[in-house]
Deep mutational scan, measured.
Amino acid sequence: MFKRLMMVALLVIAPLSAATAADQTNPYKLMDEAAQKTFDRLKNEQPQIRANPDYLRTIVDQELLPYVQVKYAGALVLGQYYKSATPAQREAYFAAFREYLKQAYGQALAMYHGQTYQIAPEQPLGDKTIVPIRVTIIDPNGRPPVRLDFQWRKNSQTGNWQAYDMIAEGVSMITTKQNEWGTLLRTKGIDGLTAQLKSISQQKITLEEKK
């Protein structure tokens, strides 16, 4: 169930391209415009997507990853294993993690069937560096609404905000991946996880038929 919630949630996290980005210092504006741009692209490019579902990787690479804190999220997933990894191991892992996100997020976007969304009203940021933004996803086919909290983090150097995690039903996506990959990290280390991520990233994206 959580895996499905995570995939549905990713439908609204794909941010804007650099040329049309919203105010990078306001995570609420980023979330709002990102959702609108993403849904528009999914709707307008269905012919290309249906002809070649792996085209979704391109959308992810162009529109999402430049505005997601990939390395920060990847380091959180590694936890204690990050500090013990060599620079070469980290570089290989982050490259594999990025390719994994292209496949995983692309597969999530393949679930698009006309969903709509509501974003919580903007709250004062103050001096906060981590801000959760509640998004409610509404399914046109009558499924119950899904309420999610996207975690946005302020870059201490640039002042810009980027998304790095999502919490559904009190469970963090980062925590879920830590639990899912924990045994592999304990037995085969970061190299074993890197190899698995490379394998997963090679899987073809498949479209979910409308139910």
Results as ranks from 00 to 15, higher is better:
N179D: 04
D127M: 09
Y67N: 03
L109Q: 04
F94P: 05
I137S: 00
L101K: 03
F150E: 11
Q196S: 10
E208H: 12
Y55R: 07
L16W: 13
R41M: 07
I167R: 09
T86Y: 07
E209Q: 13
D40Y: 06
Y72H: 03
A51N: 13
V12N: 02
W152F: 00
I119A: 00
A96C: 13
A96Y: 15
R50C: 05
N179M: 11
L5T: 02
Y55W: 06
K188E: 05
I59L: 07
F2G: 02
I130Q: 01
G159N: 11
K210S: 13
T175Y: 12
V146R: 08
Q157L: 10
S17C: 10
D61N: 09
I49G: 06
Q157C: 06
L56F: 09
N179I: 03
Y105D: 07
M111Y: 11
K102T: 15
I174Q: 09
G159I: 10
R134F: 01
A92M: 13
Y28M: 08
K154D: 03
Y105C: 04
K154I: 11
K177T: 14
A51E: 12
L76E: 01
A73G: 15
A163C: 02
R143Q: 05
D139C: 14
R186K: 02
L101Y: 07
T194Q: 10
K71E: 05
L56I: 12
E99L: 14
G74Y: 01
Q178D: 02
A88G: 13
G114L: 04
K177Y: 15
Q162D: 03
I138P: 13
T58E: 07
A110M: 14
T136E: 15
H113S: 08
P145A: 00
L10K: 01
F150T: 05
L109F: 03
I130L: 05
A110T: 15
E180I: 03
Q107D: 10
V171E: 07
L185H: 10
Q115A: 03
L5H: 01
L148S: 02
Y100E: 14
L11W: 06
L76S: 03
N44V: 14
I138Q: 15
Q89W: 06
E208T: 14
F150L: 03
Y105A: 00
V8F: 13
S172V: 00
N141H: 06
P144T: 06
Q203R: 13
E63A: 05
M6T: 04
T38N: 11
T86H: 10
E45L: 06
L65C: 05
K29M: 15
D61V: 05
S201A: 01
D165V: 00
K154L: 09
K102E: 07
E122N: 10
G74Q: 01
D32V: 07
Y100S: 13
A85W: 04
F150W: 05
D191L: 07
T187N: 06
K198M: 10
Y72W: 03
L76W: 04
L65M: 14
T206P: 11
F94E: 06
Q80R: 12
K43H: 06
G114Q: 11
V70C: 14
G74M: 04
K43E: 07
W161G: 05
L109E: 15
E91G: 10
M166K: 11
K83E: 04
H113C: 06
Y164N: 04
L64D: 01
R90K: 15
E91P: 04
L78V: 08
Y82N: 03
L78I: 03
D23Y: 11
G189M: 09
Y117E: 09
Q103E: 15
K102L: 13
R186S: 11
P53E: 13
Y72L: 01
Q80W: 06
E208W: 12
E122D: 10
D191Q: 09
V70H: 11
T20F: 10
I138H: 11
N141S: 06
T129Q: 08
D149W: 02
M111Q: 04
I119E: 06
A51V: 09
K177F: 00
E169Y: 04
P15Q: 15
V131H: 13
M1S: 00
D149Y: 04
K211S: 13
A9P: 02
A108S: 00
M31E: 02
P27H: 05
P47T: 13
Y81W: 08
W181F: 00
P47I: 09
Y82F: 09
E99A: 10
E209V: 10
L76G: 01
K177R: 13
L5M: 06
T175V: 08
Y112Q: 02
R4D: 05
P145G: 08
V131R: 10
D139N: 07
M173G: 05
M6K: 02
R41H: 05
D40R: 10
K177M: 13
I174S: 02
R90Y: 04
G159L: 12
N179P: 03
F150H: 02
L207N: 15
A120Q: 10
I174A: 00
P47C: 08
M111C: 02
Q157T: 07
E63F: 01
S84E: 12
L10F: 10
K210F: 13
I49T: 14
G170C: 00
L16V: 12
A88I: 10
K188R: 10
I13W: 14
L11Q: 02
R153I: 02
A22W: 09
P66A: 06
I13E: 00
E45D: 08
Y105W: 09
Q24R: 12
K188I: 11
D191N: 07
Q196R: 07
N160L: 07
Q89N: 07
L207T: 15
D127I: 12
A75H: 00
G182M: 12
Y82M: 04
A104H: 01
R4C: 14
D40A: 13
L101N: 14
A110V: 03
T86K: 08
L101D: 06
E208Y: 13
I138T: 09
R50G: 10
Y100F: 13
L64N: 01
Y28G: 07
Y67R: 04
D40M: 10
L148A: 00
G106N: 02
A92K: 12
S156I: 02
K29F: 14
A22S: 12
G74K: 00
K198Y: 07
Q202D: 14
P47A: 08
Y67L: 02
L64S: 01
K204N: 08
G170I: 01
P132F: 11
P124Y: 12
M1D: 00
Q103P: 15
G189L: 02
V171M: 01
R134Q: 01
R57P: 14
P27M: 06
L5S: 03
M111S: 03
Y82P: 01
M173I: 03
R57M: 11
A14M: 10
I137N: 15
V131G: 07
R41E: 05
M166T: 05
A88L: 14
A51P: 08
T86W: 03
T38L: 13
D127W: 07
L184Q: 09
R143P: 04
G182K: 15
I130Y: 07
L125P: 10
A14L: 15
L11K: 01
D40F: 06
A18D: 13
T136A: 00
P121I: 14
I133Q: 01
I49W: 03
